[in-house]
Design a protein around this nucleic acid. Structure first.
Lengths: 296, 296
DNA sequence: ACGGGAAGTAAGGAACGCTAATGGGACTGG
DNA sequence: CCAGTCCCATTAGCGTTCCTTACTTCCCGT
C-alpha cells in the first residue's frame, strides 16, 4: 500500500476548511476534483474518512487519525522546501501568523508594525484562530506561528513535534458597572459577588470553565445569566448594569471605555498565552517570536 | 514552489543505492524513468543534486541536504501508512532488520530464530549495513531496526528524530599466534606488544581508529603492517603467525578455531553496540528489540 | 413547494510519466 | 591501442491519471 501525498493534502485541506467546496476554492480546483480524490483515497485506505453532511463534512475517527499523520508529512515536505530555499540563499518572503481574536487587537499589532518596518519585503498573513485550534496548521507548515492561550482548568492540547513557549500570563480582571456596590473596593472575593448576575461564555467555553473551576475551589456557586464569548459584548452588558464579569487584562487595555470599573480578585487568576511554532525557527519566524516576547 | 514527493523518493533511493541503475532495479522502473525524474527535480530545485560519475552517482551538498529531508518526509508517510494499517487491525507482516556483518553471525541469528517461532507469519528481511551507515534508512522507514556499533574514538552519528539504545559493550580482545612469546600471559599491555606486527583496518576504518587512539593514549606507537577489514582474514593471518590483532568478543564466539589464542588487555577497550529504530515502536519491532536485549 | 448550497457521477480532454530505443563517455582487458 | 562493457542522457510514443464541465441528488431554510 502506498499513500499518495497529494491525496493526503486534499484530505487535510478539506478537514481544515470544513467542507469540500471551501477547500477547493482555497486550492484553486473544482469541488468535483477534490471529491474524486477524496473518494479514491477512501477506497485505497478501505475506510470512510469523512462524514458527508449538509453544510460540509466532518472527519471520521480514521479520518482524524490520517489528518494528524498527513499534517506531519506536509510539515516535513514544507521543511524540505524551506531547506532548498535556504541552500539557495533565498530569504523567505512570506510569514503567516495565527492569533486568537483578543490578542489580535492588543498584543499583535504593535509587534507586526515593527516587524513590517524591519522587513518590508516579507508579506505578512494574519489568520484568526480560536484556541484550542491551530496546532495542526502549524504542524503542516500552513502556519508559521500560532499565538494561543489556555484558561485555567482547560487542558493544554498536545504539541507533538512542535515547540511551545510561554509568552506571558494574562490576568483575568473583574469588571463591574460604575454604580456597583463594590465599585469602591480594590480587591474583591468571588464570595462577595456570589449574589450577582454573571456574564461569561456558554458551558465548555474556556473562560466559563475557568470561572466555574475557580468558583468551585472557592466554595462559591455563581449564577451565569448571560452567555456570550465576545468580550466587547460582555463589556457592553456590564456597562448597561446587567451583571459582572471577568475579562483578560490585555483585552481591557485595547477596549472601548464604558460605564464600568476594573478591579482585581484577591486570588488572582490568569490565562496563559503561548507561542507555538516548529522546532528551530529560522530568521523570519524567530525574529517575529523575539518581537512578541519583547512586547510581552 | 512545491516539491514532488515521488521525485524526492527517487532521489533518496538513488543516493542510497549509489547509482541510478541500481535504484531503478529496486524500484521496478527503468533507469531512464529515474534519470528523467531526477533531472526534473534538479530543474525545479535550481541546483545539481548528484554528481554523475562512472560507476554511479554521488550526492552534492544540496543533494545530501535534500536526501536528509526526503528521508523525513518518507518516514512520516510510512508512519501514516502504518497508522491506517493499525486502524484496520491488520498486523504488520513484514520486518526488516539491518545489521553489521559480525553481529549478523553471532548475536542476530538466535534472536531471529526465536522471533520466527513466535511470529511465523511475519516475513523477515535481513540487510547488511556497515556502520556508520543505515540511519537514513531507518528515518525513511525502509528499515525497521538497525543494529550498529561505535568503536572508541569514532564519533557517533546524530540520530535526529530516532531512538537509539545501547544494547551491549563488546570487548575487543587480543588475538595472538599460538607460539607467541606472550601466549602464556593472561593480561597484556599494548606497550608489551609495541614491537609486534599488527593487523587492523586501513586508515579511517573504525577498528583502526580505535586501535590507534588507544595506543596513543598509552604512549605507544604500533606498526600496522597488514590491513584488512575482514575479521576472518585477520584470524587467518594471526593463525599463520603473521602478526597480532584485536578482535571483538562476539566475533570470536562464532569464529572458526585456528592456531591462535585469545587474551585480554589490562586496560580493556570495547566497541558499543546500539539498536536504532523510530520512536514508539509497535509490537513487531518492539518484540524484536526485546529479544535482542534478552540475548545481550 | 421551491431555491440555494454542497456532494457525487459521467464523459471528454489535457498533461504527466513510463517504456523502448538510440547515442555518448569512461573504465577494463586483450 | 582498440573492442567490450557499463552507466547515464535523450528522444519519441504511448498509456494512465487527473482535472474540468455538465448534470443529478440530497438537504435545508424560506
Amino acid at each position: 500500500m502506498g499513500l499518495d501525498v497529494e491525496r493526503l493534502r486534499v484530505l487535510v485541506e478539506v478537514v481544515h476548511a470544513g467542507s469540500i467546496a471551501a477547500a477547493a476554492k482555497r486550492m484553486g480546483f473544482t469541488a468535483s476534483a477534490l471529491s474524486q480524490q477524496l473518494a479514491k483515497l477512501e477506497r485505497e485506505v478501505g475506510d470512510r474518512l469523512v462524514d458527508r453532511g449538509p453544510g460540509g463534512v466532518r472527519p471520521t475517527a480514521t479520518g482524524e487519525l490520517l489528518v494528524r499523520h498527513g499534517e506531519r508529512v506536509l510539515g516535513a515536505l514544507h521543511d524540505a522546501e524551506e531547506a532548498v530555499r535556504g541552500a539557495r540563499r533565498l530569504p523567505r518572503e512570506h510569514l503567516s501568523v495565527g492569533t486568537f481574536a483578543s490578542a489580535g487587537k492588543a498584543l499583535v499589532p504593535t509587534a507586526l508594525a515593527t516587524f513590517r518596518r524591519a522587513h518590508p519585503q516579507v508579506r505578512l498573513t494574519l489568520l484568526d484562530i480560536e484556541p484550542p485550534d491551530g496546532y495542526g496548521l502549524v504542524t503542516s507548515g500552513d502556519l508559521d506561528l500560532l499565538i494561543t492561550h489556555r484558561y485555567p482548568d482547560v487542558p493544554l492540547p498536545p504539541a507533538t513535534g512542535l515547540h511551545r513557549a510561554h509568552l506571558m500570563a494574562d490576568p483575568l480582571r473583574l469588571v463591574l458597572p460604575t454604580g456597583h456596590r463594590h465599585a469602591g473596593t480594590d480587591r474583591l472575593t468571588l464570595a462577595g459577588l456570589a449574589t450577582d448576575e454573571w456574564i461569561s461564555g456558554g458551558p465548555g467555553v474556556p473562560n466559563r470553565v475557568a470561572l466555574d473551576g475557580t468558583a468551585r475551589r472557592a466554595g462559591v456557586e455563581l449564577r451565569v445569566s448571560y452567555e456570550t464569548r465576545d468580550y466587547a459584548v460582555t463589556l457592553a452588558l456590564v456597562s448597561a448594569g446587567i451583571g459582572v464579569a471577568v475579562v483578560p487584562g490585555t483585552t481591557l487595555r485595547s477596549a472601548e471605555p464604558g460605564d464600568y470599573v476594573v478591579r482585581d480578585l484577591d486570588q488572582p487568576i490568569a490565562r496563559d498565552i503561548f507561542l507555538v511554532h516548529r522546532p528551530r525557527p529560522r530568521p523570519p519566524v524567530s525574529d517575529m517570536v523575539a518581537r512578541l516576547q519583547g512586547v510581552a
